[in-house]
């Protein structure tokens, strides 16, 4: 009984949330321009199904492209930064400085360089999301147990050996863990850029709809975003579980 309840809980929660929302809108007679009720939003979904799907698709692929870039670059930079203490220390302030810049402020620059469209969205997604990957991979490498390193170095292992045998496998849980954060950030980056400067994508759709006071469509866009975000998060979480199952030992050991 409690097991099935636990399984159904997420769905139940969503249903209750929408029910409360619907009831509140009806009972308090909230105007649609302020907060549309779920039923109205659902209507907008039906009416604008075509544009919502096609723009969602644009947002999805630009996010994935930016995320792909940040995985490749973040992994590479993380390995470089984690390689030696000197690089780690030298690079860190620059990284933190860069990460502190609100990426929305960078979008106009990207637009100047690449014009309005998908490229700024991809790059914004990339710029906003690679930092956690770098930090996590570098941390994984930098926190190798000194005894382990001693054992290997006393055997004549090179730095590369230590990294290959211990450092890199060890930083993989950190890496896959950071992907969950990075994918969410990449998504935010894409939508921010689309809202400011694009002619397609959910962000664009929402800002257009907002300008026309089509609140149901704006909210339909929001819900589409939330849905896509959950899917992408779940995908990376699944990947993490699959690739680095050994790091989740408490669940794994019970089976043996």
């Amino acid at each position: 009984m409690s097991k099935t309840f636990e399984k159904l809980a997420p769905w139940l929660f969503v249903v209750v949330l929408f029910a409360v929302w619907e009831a509140a809108c009806r009972l308090l007679a909230v105007p649609t321009v302020i907060l549309p009720a779920p039923s109205v939003i659902f209507g907008a979904f039906q009416r604008f199904w075509g544009p919502i799907v096609s723009n969602s698709f644009v947002t999805l692929w630009t996010t994935m492209a930016g995320f792909g870039l940040s995985v490749a670059f973040g992994l590479f930079l993380g390995l470089v930064v984690g390689w030696s203490r000197a690089i780690y220390r030298g690079f860190y302030p620059v990284m933190i400085g860069f990460n502190s810049i609100p990426k929305v402020a960078v979008v106009p620059i990207l637009v100047m360089w690449f014009g309005i469209g998908e490229v700024p969205a991809i790059l914004t997604a990339f710029l906003i999301s690679f930092f956690p990957i770098v930090v996590n991979v570098a941390t994984g490498l930098a926190t190798i147990e000194p005894e382990m390193e001693d054992v290997l170095r006393a055997l004549g292992a090179s730095k590369l050996d230590v990294m290959r045998k211990v450092g890199i496998p060890r930083s993989m849980p950190y890496f896959f863990g950071s992907l969950k954060v990075a994918i969410t950030l990449a998504f935010v980056g894409t939508v921010v850029s689309e809202t400011v400067a694009a002619n397609s994508g959910i962000g664009f759709l929402m800002s257009q709809a907002g300008a026309n006071f089509q609140m149901p469509l704006v909210f339909a866009g929001l819900i589409a975003l939330a849905f896509e975000g959950i899917i992408m998060y779940a995908a990376t979480a699944w990947l993490e579980q699959r690739m680095t199952g050994w790091a989740f030992r408490s669940q794994g050991s019970a089976a043996n």
Binding site: E145, E147, M148, V151, P169, R170, M172, T244, W246, A247
Partner: peptide
Amino acid sequence: MAFQNANLLPW
């Protein structure tokens, strides 16, 4: 070499 902590690689 062996230490107080076994330091086995969990993967």
